[in-house]
Design a protein around this nucleic acid. Structure first.
Length: 557
DNA sequence: AGATCCTGCGCC
DNA sequence: AGGGCGCAGGATCT
């Protein structure tokens, strides 16, 4: 397949390199050039940053089949233990090392930020290809880079399409809980009333409940001794202030995080358009740097409503990380327990634990590094039943404690101890031995979790990539035109859950494709060992109804 | 005034 | 002494 390299040139021009052939386009000519190539024989578009190039293409109605995201792949290869770092060195490689994600920009232009140097996509791509080819694990690394690049396409497409959002529903929800929208800077009426009640009960007329020090001292004066003001701490206290205070905190959080200001900033034209960062976290999980897409609370999901005659198909994987652990460790006993919809129940039926809760505690404890309590105790017993799985995370933890890096199944390496993002205080503290020990153990918990969370992210990226292709093919030979949002399309992805916005008439077919994509992802990663990845699927009009009994029933629209 | 830290909460 | 994130407000530093 052809690889076409796109690089920015000063003056709103684009350099196009394909093999020996060089060309220069004006930026305004790019969409028609790309769509022309897509129509004939879709190449792999090689560019520095998918968000930067693809957003304006999508805005111009152009969809691309595949790409190679040099920034994301550069990061992966830099840290991958199976790739020789020296093969990435060369002209401009320091610039690629320092390249930051593109700022979310107005899709109409993509030159506002620069004065950029001419970053040569063709040169960097050649180094990356050589690096993968020279690796003893080129197949897995190649899959990882492809999945990562496809994720970047999905992220851009989801931002472009947006989550269908009913502002009227959201506004009614806020008004019911908080009172009418207040003027800027003021609290809504019901929130203000709760604050007044808290002040009255504590006898602190000037208290600002949002101020941590004020609240602590007011509680103390009322004879309430707490170490902090977390909800869970407060709820252990027997006192009339607890109920209104907890309520205040809940509603206050809704107001400030997903209130009217959030609507103003992130919802437009009936769509919620967050900004995603694929592989934005060290483990390879996505993060989001706008709109809080990966953490918007269940409380406001009722405002995510499909368009008329459309539905939301919501699917999440049951116990993704334990299943991934079974697959990557080759633990046949755990894989057997994972057959069926409930892995934890499978462990009970296996005779490994007495209750479902014990199974969950033990597995999560093993993956997070619990050392004490109920969870820590369950780990010991389960290690005997599932030695490969529990041994894998244990070994990852010990490697971290020794200061070694670990890697995911497809070869993503973790950041080094003391390296970027790990304990980098500029004024290097004179770390005593206790301190060093504490850091090593913390790093061990990180590496322990990294191998599982990171491989789960790889599974999810493969799931997304395959699903994206399947949904596009459903649309039927471009008959619906090149736009993605008139066909079934992804609108949300939350680590182990996807939401597809689709015409109601295609719902059953979408469910089938999501399920098939999950199987495909399992096969891509764990060929030799069969691990089930059962999904909970709901076809709903409103996201809030997902997961409820009856959600999978045919939807009346 | 702006940058940064801290706390607490939301999601997985 | 349980992993990964983002976000908001207040407190604190510069």
């Amino acid at each position: 397949m052809a690889r076409v390299h796109l690089s920015r040139l000063p003056g709103d021009r684009v350099q196009v390199v394909e093999g020996e052939h060089y060309d220069v386009l004006d930026i305004t000519a790019l969409p028609s050039y790309v769509s022309g190539r897509e129509a004939v024989d879709p190449p792999r578009w090689v560019w520095d940053d998918t968000a930067r190039w693809y957003a304006p293409l999508l805005a111009a109605g152009v969809r691309v089949e595949r790409c190679h995201d040099l920034r994301l792949c550069h990061r992966v290869l830099r840290r991958a233990p199976a790739a020789a770092a020296s093969l990435l060195d060369g002209e401009q490689s320091d610039l690629w090392d320092r390249l930051r994600p593109a700022e979310p920009t107005d899709p109409a232009l993509f030159s506002a930020d620069d004065a950029t140097e001419h970053l040569r996509a063709d040169l960097e791509d050649a180094r990356q290809l050589a690096s993968v080819a020279a690796s003893p694990e080129s197949a897995r690394l190649g899959l990882l880079l492809a999945a990562e690049s496809a994720s970047a396409l999905v992220a851009a497409e989801m931002t472009h399409a947006g989550v269908p959002w009913r502002v009227d529903v959201h506004d009614r929800l806020l008004t019911d809980l908080l009172g009418p929208r207040p003027p800027r800077g003021a609290r809504p009426r019901l929130l203000e009333e709760l604050a007044a009640e808290v002040r009255r009960i504590l006898g602190a007329p000037d208290l600002n409940p949002d101020s941590h020090p004020h609240l602590m001292s007011a509680l103390r004066r009322a004879g309430i001794e707490v170490a902090d003001t977390r909800r869970s701490t407060l709820q252990r206290i027997e006192h009339p202030v607890v109920e209104p205070l907890v309520r205040y905190k809940q509603l206050g959080h809704l107001f400030s995080t997903n209130g009217w200001a959030w609507i103003d900033q992130w919802v437009g034209d009936g769509r919620f358009r967050p900004v995603y960062q694929p592989a934005g976290s060290a483990t390879g999980r996505w993060s989001s740097n706008g709109g809080g897409a990966l953490s918007f609370p269940a409380q406001v999901r009722s405002a995510a409503v499909a368009d008329d005659d459309w539905v939301l198909v919501v699917a999440d994987v049951a116990q993704l990380e334990p299943r991934v652990l079974a697959g990557m460790s080759g633990d046949r006993a755990l894989a057997r327990a994972a057959r069926g919809a409930d892995l934890y129940q499978g462990m009970v039926d296996d005779g490994a634990v007495a209750t479902r809760q014990d199974a969950k505690l033990g597995l999560l404890g093993a993956m997070y590094g619990a050392t004490s309590g109920e969870s820590g105790r369950m780990v010991a017993g389960l290690t005997r039943r599932y030695p490969a799985a529990f041994g894998l995370v244990e070994e990852a933890a010990r490697a971290g404690e020794r200061g070694q890096v670990v890697r995911t199944l497809l070869g993503r390496g973790c950041p080094a101890l003391g390296g970027t993002s790990w304990d980098e205080s500029p004024d290097a503290p004179p770390a005593d031995l206790d301190d060093q020990d504490r850091r090593r153990r913390a790093y061990g918990r990180f590496t322990r979790n990294f191998v599982v969370q990171g491989t789960a992210a790889e599974w999810a990226a493969c799931w997304l990539a395959d699903l994206r292709n399947r949904l596009w093919r459903m649309g039927g030979d471009g008959a619906a035109g090149p736009r993605i949002d008139v066909r079934p399309h992804l609108v949300l992805f939350l680590h182990d859950e996807v939401v597809v916005h689709a015409p109601a008439s295609l719902a059953d077919q979408v469910v089938a494709e999501i399920t098939a994509a999950a199987s495909a992802a399992g096969w891509l990663l764990f060929r030799e060992l069969p691990v089930d990845f059962p999904l909970n699927v709901s076809v709903v009009r409103s996201y809030a109804d997902a997961g409820k009994p009856g959600g999978t029933a045919p939807v009346d629209v």
